[in-house]
Amino acid sequence: MSKKPSKPTSSAPRKFLDALYGGTPLKVDGAILDSLRLHDGLAGDDHGPLFARLPERHRQMLALSDGLDLLAGSYRLFGWDNDAARSMRWWNDVETWKFAWGDHPPGYLCFGESVLGNQFAYREDELSKGGAAKVYELYAVTLEPICHYHNFDHFLDGGFLNGVRNDAYHGRIAQARHQLGGFELDKHLAYAVSPLLTGGAVDVQQLMIMSASSHMIVNGDLWRQIAHRDSLTGLKGIEDYVDSKGRSRLRVQWS
Rank of each mutant, 00 (worst) to 15 (best):
R177C: 04
F111V: 07
V28G: 14
M61A: 09
G171C: 07
K98C: 02
A121W: 05
Y21R: 04
R59S: 03
F155M: 03
D203M: 09
S194M: 12
H148D: 03
S213M: 10
G131I: 10
P105C: 07
Y139L: 06
P105D: 02
K245I: 00
R165W: 09
L20Q: 14
G158D: 05
K187W: 04
N151P: 03
S10P: 02
A174F: 13
Q253M: 13
G22R: 01
R165V: 05
Y21C: 08
H154S: 02
S2W: 04
G102T: 01
S244W: 13
T142M: 05
L77E: 11
H150P: 01
Q60G: 01
E113K: 15
K245C: 00
T233K: 05
A19I: 00
G23T: 09
G102I: 00
G200H: 05
H178F: 13
W91E: 08
L26S: 07
W80R: 05
A168I: 08
D66M: 06
G112F: 02
A84S: 15
L36W: 06
P25V: 10
T9Y: 12
G237N: 03
P8M: 14
G131H: 07
P25I: 00
K98V: 10
G44T: 14
T9A: 11
D46Y: 15
A168G: 01
A63W: 11
K15P: 10
R59F: 02
A63Y: 11
G200C: 05
R247T: 06
H178C: 14
K134M: 04
R247Q: 15
D69T: 13
K187V: 00
P5A: 08
S6N: 09
A12P: 07
L116G: 12
S65V: 04
W101E: 05
R251W: 09
Y149N: 02
V94I: 08
A140W: 04
L185V: 01
I217A: 02
R89W: 00
R57D: 03
D83P: 07
I146Y: 02
D66K: 08
G182W: 11
M61S: 06
D83Y: 06
S87K: 01
G199M: 10
A140I: 12
L64M: 13
I226Y: 07
E137N: 03
R251V: 10
R224Q: 15
P8K: 13
F111N: 06
R177N: 04
S6L: 02
S10D: 08
S255N: 11
A31V: 14
L62P: 12
G73D: 07
R177Y: 05
K7L: 02
S65T: 12
A63I: 11
G159H: 06
M88V: 12
K27P: 15
K27A: 15
V28Q: 13
E124I: 11
A84H: 06
